[in-house]
């Protein structure tokens, strides 16, 4: 079931990504292909199988509440595109 342009635009807006008309079309095709691949799973008969969020039979592992060290501030901020003092500076999010 291919996606339509409106769905792609909705996904882009949720991710706050602006797309050109050409890009909408490109992602519409790519995302539709990915979805189509997943349709292969629909061929399996899953009647009687309980839904699960995790396919692997793992149990959550807990960590003791012990504090360790953090990154040095310089290192922590080294990826920030823009800084102001010890803060990361970002564009104000427009409250539309």
């Amino acid at each position: 079931m291919p996606l339509d342009r409106e769905q792609v635009e909705h996904i882009a807006s949720l991710a706050r990504i602006g797309l050109t008309d050409d890009e909408v079309e490109m992602f519409r095709q790519q995302l539709s292909d990915i979805l189509e691949q997943f349709q292969a799973l629909a061929e399996l008969d899953t009647a009687g199988i309980e839904p699960t969020g995790h396919a692997v039979d793992l149990r959550g592992v807990l960590r003791e509440d012990e504090a360790g060290s953090s990154l040095a501030a310089e290192e922590a901020l080294s990826n920030a595109p823009r800084r102001e003092g010890e803060f990361i500076r970002v564009k104000a999010v427009l409250e539309e």
Binding site: E66, A67, S70, L71, A73, A76, L77, G85, E86, I88
Partner: peptide, 15 residues
């Protein structure tokens, strides 16, 4: 394992 005492820490020092 970062310390949770963010209120009194210097900015971006518990990350």
């Amino acid at each position: 394992a970062c310390r949770a005492d963010y209120q009194t820490a210097a900015p971006n020092s518990r990350v």
